[in-house]
Design a protein around this nucleic acid. Structure first.
Lengths: 336, 336
DNA sequence: TTTATTTACGAATACGTTTAAGTGAACGCA
DNA sequence: TGCGTTCACTTAAACGTATTCGTAAATAAA
């Protein structure tokens, strides 16, 4: 290419060996402060930038982490990335982004390709299409992995989650307290802990209030938006629930549109609550009651623990926090 | 580390030289189909993954691109990343994400660090805090760069933008046609082409309708949300405009809150229009009239052109598209 | 048959770092 | 004085791949 400046350049210029230069750049104790300073000064002057490939090849450190998520264009995940990036930035780490689009094969392809040593560690939020976990098993014993939000069972790795069960329980209670007894549940992430815990919270809250669980009131998520819309419309018009509990944000807006189409008034005819990180929730018509996850903090915590692992700092399992989501009551559930 | 499988492993196993293996893996014409097949089969069987560091060190190809943007947690940028990732995926490229948080120093640090050969090319949407472009000048003649949406002048690089001038002009006309004559402008990105063109569109539309330009009606963006809110409130309560044109999404919601606080009815007392990619714009109260940029397509186009450059495929300047934004009329401007 | 060309492969080197092992000088201590 | 240490640095060997330059055999051309 061009006459790039390398350790060799610096060494020649200063009349010292390249080993000394390398060690100086890495602030090794073996090198005198004088020499270090000279090297640093010259490096800055010549705008030396360490070649990451060579460094990685030799040291097996990439200063890079990968983030595997379903979608970037999602309020929760973009906030989580934000948190991850903030932590990575402080450590001068680089962040690779991979989107699975909820596709398990894509996810597997990513995890396999990341075994090549491209990154030091991986943060994953599992795709909802994932049913087979073998690729994760292989992954976690070859490279540090931290799961966040969307987690699975039977894998030995750090998992950063929120209190899905409790917040779903609480949300359901909120609906019941506001007079609902026929509460539909829009069930997503059914093959992940995350989804299952939310459903349990819903069910247990019903049971605690002596309300029967009606499986006709529980429908799954369809990745085809039109079909999903139809399913919700069907549910609402046939089962005539007095409330809808949406377990993911993607369900919430279709509900609003369905109510519009069916001429239903929210919250009088139907109350709506949703897990969501929509910044516009307070400005919707009517404003949407949400269970809002601390997405940014989840990202920060997940990255933080990944770096603990990379630094080989020991920690106890009970140090891993379960973050709290917030129930924000708004008009869509009657505003109280 | 561990006994990883390398070209050496494959070579030994097949009793051929590592050169042959390497060439076979790269599908070189020098190698017979028989041998290639054998190598490929064994590689798959042993789950060989090419070491990216070694490959990059030797070949100066990283199969990685960097995306430098102000914020991930922004509807426009997350959609753009989505588009970029889609194109990168097809090419089996990896995508690094860097957030500047609108900070010019951070931006400079990124561009400098990316000179180390970590990536093959860079996609940038310039931070609004950027006033000095020297770091970009240095960058563009050392590595392929494509700018998207947020661009600057005086830099010789591909730029993928939308019709900012036209859409701002059109939006202003829309307000005028709906009876507004005292239109405030919330001016952001003032040091970027993007921001300047939007302002020009606004001004020219006013002029075309024989309306005077009142600088008191034009205020800038304050990155402190509280201060920004105060500024808008001040503007609206003192200048009493009959419409507000927000040049970025971040201005829009504060306007809604200000109107709430001041007891102003949208659109009767004040009409609002905004550049925005909010998916909830139709569900706001009242629904928000937006100029919506094709964020996903911008990302795809930008990545597409970056790859054209990387492939050294020649193209004419007039092949670079200027994408069209869409004006979507809703209640906040009177719904017609 | 002789010569030229093509085919299919191998040997050796380089990419820019990091690091284990070594070295001479200076110093401390008995 | 002799011995062991420490200090500050150097030598040399990796890391795993891509690539240039050969080369022997097979094929084609003469």
């Amino acid at each position: 290419m061009k006459g790039n400046v390398t350790v060799k350049t610096l060494a020649k210029e200063l009349n010292i060996s390249i080993a000394t230069v390398s060690k100086a750049l890495n602030d090794s104790y073996e090198i005198s402060v004088d020499t270090k300073q000279k090297v640093w000064d010259l490096a800055k002057k010549l705008k030396y930038e360490r070649n990451p490939a060579a460094s990685n090849l030799r040291s097996h450190k990439t200063r890079t982490i990968a983030v595997i998520i379903p979608e970037v264009a999602n309020n929760f995940f973009s906030l989580a990335i934000n948190g991850i990036e903030e932590i990575a930035r402080k450590r001068d780490y680089h962040v690779l982004i991979y989107q699975t689009h909820e596709n398990s094969e894509t996810e597997t392809a990513f995890t396999e390709s990341l075994l090549s040593g491209r990154v030091d560690g991986i943060l994953i939020s599992v795709s909802s299409g994932t049913e087979n976990y073998d690729h994760f098993r292989e992954l976690v014993d070859k490279i540090p992995v931290v799961f966040f939000d969307r987690t699975i069972e039977g894998i030995d790795a750090v998992k950063i989650t929120t209190d899905d069960y409790e917040s779903a329980y609480q949300a359901t209670c909120h609906l019941i307290e506001n007079g609902c007894s026929n509460i539909a549940y829009l069930y997503a992430l059914s093959n992940l802990c995350t989804g299952q815990r939310r459903l349990e919270g819903y069910k247990d809250a019903l049971a605690a209030h002596q309300l029967a669980i009606n499986n006709d009131l529980i429908i799954g998520y369809d990745k085809n938006p039109d079909q999903n819309y139809e399913n919700i419309k069907q549910l609402i018009s046939v089962q005539k629930p007095d409330a809808v509990f949406s377990s993911i944000e993607e369900f919430a807006l279709p509900c609003y549109y369905v109510c519009r189409e069916l001429g239903l008034n929210i919250p009088n005819d139907l109350k709506i609550i949703s897990f969501s990180n929509l910044s516009t929730a307070p400005l919707l018509s009517p404003s949407l009651t949400t269970i809002t996850q601390p997405a940014f903090e989840i990202g920060k915590e997940a990255a933080g623990f990944l770096f603990k692992i990379l630094d080989k700092k020991p920690f106890d399992a009970d140090e891993i926090p379960i973050l709290k989501s917030t129930l924000i009551k708004r008009e869509s559930t009657g505003l109280c």
